[in-house]
Structures are given as C-alpha cells and as structure tokens.
Nucleic acid binder design. Sequence first.
DNA 1: GCGCCGTATTGATTCGTTTCAATATCGAAT
DNA 2: ATTCGATATTGAAACGAATCAATACGGCGC
Lengths: 334, 334
Amino acid sequence: MASVSVRDVAALAGVSMGTVSNVLNHPDKVSSATVARVQSAVEKLGFVPNGVARQLRAGISNSIGLVVLDAANPFFTDLASGAEARAAERHHTVLVGNSSQDPARETAYLDLFEQQRVRGVLLSPVGDVLPRLERLHHRGIPSVLVDRQAGDPGFSSVSVDDVAGGRLATTHLVSLGHRRIVFVGGPFRLRQVSDRLAGARSATKHRPDTSIEFVETESLTVEAGHTAGQEIRARTTNDRPDAVFAANDLVALGLLQAFMHQGSIKVPEEIALIGYDDITFASAAVVPLSSVRQPSHRIGSTSVELLLREADGGKEPRHIVFQPELVVRASTGR
Amino acid sequence: MASVSVRDVAALAGVSMGTVSNVLNHPDKVSSATVARVQSAVEKLGFVPNGVARQLRAGISNSIGLVVLDAANPFFTDLASGAEARAAERHHTVLVGNSSQDPARETAYLDLFEQQRVRGVLLSPVGDVLPRLERLHHRGIPSVLVDRQAGDPGFSSVSVDDVAGGRLATTHLVSLGHRRIVFVGGPFRLRQVSDRLAGARSATKHRPDTSIEFVETESLTVEAGHTAGQEIRARTTNDRPDAVFAANDLVALGLLQAFMHQGSIKVPEEIALIGYDDITFASAAVVPLSSVRQPSHRIGSTSVELLLREADGGKEPRHIVFQPELVVRASTGR
DNA sequence: GCGCCGTATTGATTCGTTTCAATATCGAAT
DNA sequence: ATTCGATATTGAAACGAATCAATACGGCGC
C-alpha cells in the first residue's frame, strides 16, 4: 500500500527511471509523447516524489530555519510572516522554531537545522551562539542575525537601531515633562533590552534633573510586565515614577493591567507609559499605547533576502539597520 | 570542505561504517574501547549525522506537520505551543504552516508535508480537505482535525463545542437584557464561524422578543473587525444593535477600536460586546473583553497525542470535544 | 588440540531520487 | 551509402546512513 517510487512509474510507463526523473524536472529534454505517457502513469499510481530522497541527492534543502525568541509575540509572528512570504517567492520554506528565550531550546533547534542541512539559518539569539554559527558557516550553512546587530561582523545581520529607539521613547517622555522614569524589561543580557536601555540612559544623561531606574524582568511577556506592575503599584505614591518605558509592548500591556487594577493608578495622568514594537494590540489597549514601531515584516523579508544571497553567491556579509519610529497615543498623554 | 560522513569517521577511527553507525545508535553493541575511539574521531572531525539520509533510510520522519488558519492569532500560537511541547516530549518536531485561511496555501503545505513524508498531519482546515486526507491516510500518513469536528468520522478530531460556545455567549447577552444582537464574523464557510453562529441562533430561537442579525467579514482579523465596526458605527442610533457577538477576539478588538473612535459608541452602555477565544490581549483591551475561553494549549497537546497514537498503533480514530467556558468582563457590563 | 558459543565487527545492500556519460534513433548532408 | 549531428533515452553510480547476515575473535570445556 505504501510507497510508489519512480521505479514503479517507470515500469508502468515503459521507460527508464532516468526518463521519469527528466519528465519531472526537465520536461523540455523529453519528447512530448513520453511526457504524456509518464504523466498518466504518475496520475494513475498517485505518485508523489519523495522529498527526502530528493534532498539527499541534491545535498542541500530549500528550507530555511528561523529561531525566534518568542512565538507568542506578534512582533515575531509578523517577522516570520515576512520571512515566509519572501521565501515562498524564492521557492523556499521556512521552518520556525521557538526558543522561548531558553538557550537550551535555541541550541536544540540549531542542532535540528544542522542535521537537516537547511539552506541557511535566521536567528534572533538568546545565548552565545557565535561559535555555533562559525561551525555552521564552516559546514556551508550561512546565517543571518535577526533583530540584533552582529557582535561579530562576520555574520550578516538585519536589525533596528534599538539605541535610537530607546532614546526616541525616553526623549518623548522627558519632553512631556516627566522626570522620574523607570525602564522595565529583561533579562538585561538580551541585546534588544540592553540597547533600548542604553538609549534611554543616553537620553537622560545630560539632564541632571531626570532620573532613570531599571527594573529587570525574567522575560518579555505580559505576565512578567504584570508582576513588575504590581511591584510598582505597591510603592507609596512618593516612590512611584511619573513615567514607565517598557522594553516591549507585551510588558507594557502587563504593566497597564496592573496599573489599572481597581483604577489604582491612572495612565497617563499619574504614570505615563510607552512600549516598544507597536504590535496590533497596542492601539486597542485599555489606554491606547504609545510605542516605538519597527518594520517587523520587512525585517523578516530582508533577512531572507540576505540569507539567500549568501547561500547562492557567497558574497560577503552585509548589515542592514532600520530606523524605528515613534508612535504617540493616549498612554503618554499628548 | 563541506561534509564529513560516517565514512570519514570510520576511516579515522580505523573501523567500518557499520560500527560507527552502531556507536551512534546502539552503543551497547560495541566494545567500550571502540566507542571511545569512534567518539573521539567524531569529535575531531566535527561530524554531525545527516538527518536527511537517516530519514530516507528510516522511511519515516519524526516531524509532525501542523497547518493553522492564522498564525497571527494568539489562539493558534498557543495551540501550536501546546503541540510542540507534547511533541518534544515524544522526540518529535512540529513544522508549522500558516494557511492564512487560503485554501491554496493549505494545499501547498499539505503537498510539502506529503513530500516530506511527515509522521502525521494536524490540520485546522479551510477548504474541502477530506479527499486530500484520504490520500494521505492511504499513504500511511495519519491526520487529526484540529479545532473542528470531523465531518467524516474516519478522521480523528480534537475540537471545542462551538455551538455550545455560541449559545453560552448569546445566552449571556440575552440574560443581561439585550434583545437586538449582531453576530460578526466570517467567512461563514469556516466551521468555527458557522457553529458559533448556530449556537447564537439556537439561544434566541425560543425568544420571539430577540432578533439576531449576521454580518459577514472576509476574515477573522482585527482589521476585518474594524471594518465591520465602522459599518455599524455609520448606522443611525435606531438601527444599531444593543449587543455584538464577535466570532473571535481579534474581530472583537477591531470592533471595539471602531466603536471607541472619538468615543462615538460607549461599550458596554450603548453596545455590549463579547468575543471568543479569550486571548491574552482580551483582558488588556480598552474595555476588558468578555469572551468564551477555549483550552488552546490542551487542544494542541491532545492533538499530538491522538496523532502519535494513530501513527504508532493504528488504532481507530477518536473524537475529543472540549467544553468552552464563559469569561465575563467589562465589555458586557456585569 | 578441537569444537563450540557469545560477543564484536565487517561489508554489502538498501532507501528513492538525480545526474551524466554512454548509447540508440533518425533525418540530413556529403 | 556513409558520416555527422541533434535529439531521446538508458543504466549505473552517486548522496549518507542503517541494517543484517556473515565472519572474526576469544575463551571455555572436554
């Protein structure tokens, strides 16, 4: 019942296996009469070529591996959909792995992709992956760092200037008159977080009347934001900040939920709030959320672009940096 | 420079390919001295077994294909994460495809999975896929319908009783005194939509004082909801419903955005609103959203469970139906 | 010293496809 | 009639690992 192979098709059509293969892949090399005969045999047997065997023979697949930090974050689903779209145009497939910010899972996916001999790897890294990428590179598997500038210029990268984004958000808060700012996000070892934080710091550096405090969270989720928000809500009014900059919108939404609980803290009157990523849900939040927009879809498509360029030609690595954009909504007053 | 194979490892270790393979897969069959020698050769050469070759030889992969209706919908990302977690426990990998409610893309992913000879397929269908699944089944690839009861009992399914869910939501609206209800969602050909709608209808059937109207959208997205909301907002006050039941939370959030625009319609005072799925963002919305909760994570893990059972033992198909749960928040008053 | 048994190891074959040099076929040109 | 060329087709050799019957190697009892 199981598998019909080219052999069976060839037998039924009365030709050799090579000819069947040619009908499938180079129909122009085969006389039209034979093409017809083979195709009807394919039809009759319900033959579907075995992609695994094909890939083994070809030596390289047309799949691209993508490891994201958090599949539940709309920023990454947008990014992934951008990557998929571009890949589909080039007849490639994207395999998405979710590291959930766990270095072990990240490694597991890299192992899988290496074993599967994917065409290349797109990665928004958690752990220290450079040695790993070296190894992949050495094996002929190129990689592109996504949403993070390469520490090592040896690897291509597509990123957004997170320092600029952090500065944008913070400058905006300061310009509204806020002086006591809290940055919420984490873990700080994530580049996205530390860069946005650095931007925040640089925006306040030359303003001695402002202060900036850092609250580290375990992850960049709604839940983590909610926890941090409860901590802030528990403070006495005097100890509270007058503005909060969240490392991403999920955290911001969690904070917002905590602040609004029983109406304890009014946003933006008592505390102004700004997030990062401008996910779809930001504008539909209890208090529509100000945010820093990133071109998530384009990041994905551009990454694939770079990756395939490298996989094909072997050009030297490139670095593309997009600029973020401030989006002002009700959560920072106006 | 590329690939080191078992052959190279065997040569360096001074053993046969068969022995290398045994070290990798049945270390107990090999003397410990040889194991050590082979492992050091593996180390030295940086050998990573070729998963593609392995799979070809094995004849079956340990990947599971999953096709979702909308990867941007948190309901499906939760479902996928449930599936991944369960699959990982069983040493399987989930390949996620996003059909975006497009039958052509759905078919493309099924083609891919068939060519890749995956272990099985999880599918939340858009088009008429039963013939396709028959074919897969005939080829020895089992499938499980996800988030939809099988029309054909020949295939296993894991679903939520959407009719009950629709009834739950609508009964709730009626019990709050709402009499003029609009159901927003689409396309109606999606089972999820038509079932929820059927539930809504059944809840109002024996109440001649209530009316229910159906507004069909092109898809189940925030944007589609927003468009439908603008249409409703454009009506004269007399023509407006006093409650809206959205086919999912994304649509509900879109509606909410449209209603709140310049404060034109107050929720829930002028129009009560209830969604479906209870995604994370529902509780953080402008007006926290009432919804119908589904056990998305468990749906995913249970699906994998059923699929692997079928892939292993070949037991007869099973049908699991979860019950939805009403979650009341501010958007339906109280 | 011989046969026997269990453990270790080998080497050839298989999985299903693509590739490519070799061959077959046929018409046109010499 | 023979050669040349172009076009179609063939068949065998890869790709890289897993399997399994066959063999080698010891040690043991007799």
